[in-house]
Design a protein around this nucleic acid. Structure first.
Lengths: 153, 153
DNA sequence: ACGACAAATGATATGTTGTAACATGCTACA
DNA sequence: TGTAGCATGTTACAACATATCATTTGTCGT
């Protein structure tokens, strides 16, 4: 049982606990995202599934499935890039803070981090002073990853 | 000479100083964004210009013009919302730090703020620790504005 | 096991956002 | 005034996303 399957297993447990089903198609989409070390667009997922599982996966289904997986906190949507990533903490088995995402502009590689609560609090404070309220502390930041920095140098 | 025209005047000076031209069409697009208190999509700008200036403005032109205006730091693209706003500081006449944007999820109203340099430094530090490098400190945050908070209550 | 209901997926159409490529027009300057 | 370069027009299409209704599949009570 490889790495990916293990994570899928965890995800399945989580879904069962919530009284929802992790169907075959949903597993396929989630597995695609887990295997990928970078964020994928919905249509890249379509291609992946169509190539790997021998039948065409309609875009409509992928969007529906992504919505489901996002709702179950198994994937995150990155609005900065219009792409999707598997949650980095499916297997941890405990609750997590809202994550922040570092997205490589060059290659779409994504790192999920947790910045200091104090820093978050400072941000929230600045937002409040401006008369707005933060809806989510999920931040997305335009970055370059190690690999792409090295390559550019 | 009203508020909008004054800002356009400043923008024109800036362009002249850079040896580029703020043409009629470019002024129309910029004026549309300045008049709007919220972020507009490219196609909303198309509609605005077509309605206000009596001839249809092709989407292609709007995208080209937005690219130009962004390059001149007269507008900002908000990737979180796929929308565009006029820079809040065109008339200030002095250099500004990279801004952060609070975007109302509900109504697209945007506030441009400058968060504490210390907070920015903490963020950059967290990013570096993860092995990435921040490409820009332009942050975009999902928020609710005062009006929409009041309405929701 | 069976029927009925709900959930999931299929199929088709369409809306929204953005770019490519090439033609035409405008402006400034030699 | 000619011309080179920039700006805009035009058309086509790629990429991203949602709406709607039909069909299939899974679950549950009987």
């Amino acid at each position: 049982m490889d790495h990916v399957e293990k994570i899928i297993g965890h995800a399945e447990q989580q879904c069962k606990a919530h009284g929802v089903r992790l169907t075959v198609k949903r597993k396929q989409v989630l597995a695609g995202l887990i295997q990928s070390d970078k964020a994928l667009s919905a249509y890249e997922i379509v291609d992946f599934c169509t190539r790997h599982y021998g039948q065409t996966m309609p875009a409509m289904s992928v969007y529906r499935i992504l919505e489901f997986l996002e709702h179950e906190h198994l994937v995150h949507k990155l609005s900065l890039a219009n792409k999707y990533v598997a949650c980095a903490h499916i297997s941890c088995g405990h609750a997590h803070a809202v994550p922040q995402f570092l997205i490589c502009r060059q290659c779409s590689k994504v790192k999920e981090i947790s910045i200091q609560p104090a820093t978050i609090a400072e941000l929230r404070q600045s937002v409040n002073e401006a008369g707005f309220k933060l809806v989510t502390t999920q931040l997305e930041m335009n970055c370059l990853c190690e690999g792409c920095i090295a390559q550019a140098a």
